[in-house]
Nucleic acid binder design. Structure first.
Lengths: 203, 203
DNA sequence: ACATAAAACGAACGGTCGTGCTATTATGGA
DNA sequence: TCCATAATAGCACGACCGTTCGTTTTATGT
C-alpha cells in the first residue's frame, strides 16, 4: 500500500468516527486536517470534493459492517441462530468504540433522507442491502423449516430493524440502561412469533 | 397578539418545517430571513441566539404534537383503542405536510444524541414524555383489565416506538410503499401479545 | 395626533466553510 | 543516484455563518 493510500485510509477512518458523532454533513475538511496534522489542501487533494469524501466514508463503514456483522453471522446455522447472531452483532456494532456516535447508517439516514443526491442514494442502497440480509436470513430459516411458511420476511426485517432503532434512541439519547435488555426481549418475542404456530388472536 | 409575537410565531413555524428537512443544526438564520422576507438582524433580534431559536422550535413542535397526537388519543377509551389511536395519530403526524422532512423529534434525536447541551437535554425530555405517554396508556389498559398484568409497559413503549422509527426509515429513505402497512401489522402483533394469554414459547 | 416603545433594517465583524491554484517536498523505480 | 511522479503545503478566493451595533421605520396606547 503506497503512502497516499495509507493516509487516505487514516483520513477515512477518522472521518468515519467524526461523522458518527456530528453527522455526514457535519464533517469539516479543516477540522479533519487539524486532527490529523495535515494541511487542508493536502487532505482535500485525496478526494476532489466533500461529497466524494462522504461517499467513501460510507463505503468504509459498509465494509466494516459486512466484516464485523454480516459475514460472521452468516456462518451460523440457518434459522434462529443466524438471525440472533445478526441482531447481537448489530448491537455490538452500534456501540463499538470506533463509532463513538453510534451506528453511522442510522444517524446518516435521519440526516439525509430528505436531501436528494448521490449520498442519499448510496445510503439507501446500503440500508436496502442490510434489510435484504435480514429478509434473506429469514427466508433461509423458512426453507429449513425453522420458521413458519406464512411469515413475511420483509415484515420481520422491518420489525427487527425497528428494535435496533429504538435501542439506539433509548440507549444513546435517553441513556436508559434497560434499553438493551428490552431490545433483546423484543427480538426474542419476534423470533417466538416466527417459530410458533400461526397465531390468530381470538377476535 | 402583538406584531412581534405574530412574526415570531411565523418564524418558528417556518424554522420548524425547515429543520424537519435539514436538521435543527442545519437551520440558517440568513436563509430563514430570506424565506420570510426579513432582514437577518431583524429576525435574529427575536431570539438572542441560535440555540434559543432551536429550543423554541422544539417547544412549538411539542405543542403541536400534544395537540394533534396526544390529547385527541387520550380521549379514546382505555386499552387497545387508546393505544391504537396514539399509534395511528403518530403516523399521520410523521407525514403531516407541515413537517416535510418527517417527525422532527426523530431526526433531531439522531442528530443531537451525541452533542451535549441544552438542546439535547430538552430533546431528551420531550422524548421521555412521549415514552411515558405510551407507557402510561399501557398501564391504564392493564388497570382496566384489557392487557395482561405481567406486561411491562416500558417494554411495549420501546417496541412500539421502534415500529414508528422503522416506518420512518422504510417510508422516507427507502420510499417503500409497504412500510406503513408493515408498521401497522407489527403494531397489531404487539397489541395481540399484550392482550392474549401469557405466551411462553415452547422451549 | 403625538410620544414612546417595539420592531425591523443595513452594514460590518471575525470565523469557518469548500474549493482552486501554484509551489515545494517526499517517494519509488530505472 | 537521478528523475518522474505522487503527496503535501501554502495561500487566496468567494460565500455563508452567527452575532453586534446604531439607525430608522412602524406600531401601540393615550
Amino acid at each position: 500500500m503506497s503512502k497516499g493510500d495509507t493516509t487516505r485510509q487514516a483520513i477515512l477512518e477518522r472521518a468515519l468516527s467524526m461523522s458518527s458523532v456530528i453527522g455526514l454533513e457535519g464533517i469539516s475538511i479543516g477540522r479533519l486536517a487539524d486532527d490529523l496534522a495535515l494541511s487542508k489542501s493536502g487532505l482535500f487533494a485525496h478526494f476532489r470534493s466533500k461529497e466524494a469524501l462522504q461517499l467513501q466514508v460510507l463505503e468504509v463503514a459498509a465494509q466494516q459492517f459486512v466484516d464485523s456483522v454480516v459475514r460472521p453471522a452468516l456462518k451460523e446455522p440457518r434459522g434462529e441462530p443466524r438471525l440472533r447472531a445478526l441482531f447481537e452483532r448489530w448491537l455490538v456494532w452500534a456501540r463499538s468504540q470506533s463509532l463513538p456516535g453510534g451506528c453511522i447508517f442510522v444517524s446518516a439516514t435521519m440526516e439525509m433522507d430528505d436531501r436528494p443526491g448521490p449520498v442519499r442514494d448510496a445510503l439507501a442502497r446500503y440500508q436496502q442491502d442490510w434489510i435484504n440480509v435480514l429478509a434473506t436470513a429469514t427466508r433461509a430459516g423458512q426453507e429449513s423449516g425453522a420458521f413458519r411458511g406464512e411469515l413475511d420476511p420483509e415484515q420481520l426485517a422491518q420489525e427487527a430493524y425497528g428494535l435496533m432503532l429504538s435501542y439506539h434512541l433509548f440507549a444513546r439519547l435517553l441513556r436508559d440502561p434497560q434499553g438493551e435488555a428490552r431490545a433483546r426481549a423484543g427480538f426474542e418475542a419476534l423470533l417466538a412469533r416466527a417459530v410458533g404456530p400461526a397465531r390468530t388472536p381470538a377476535k
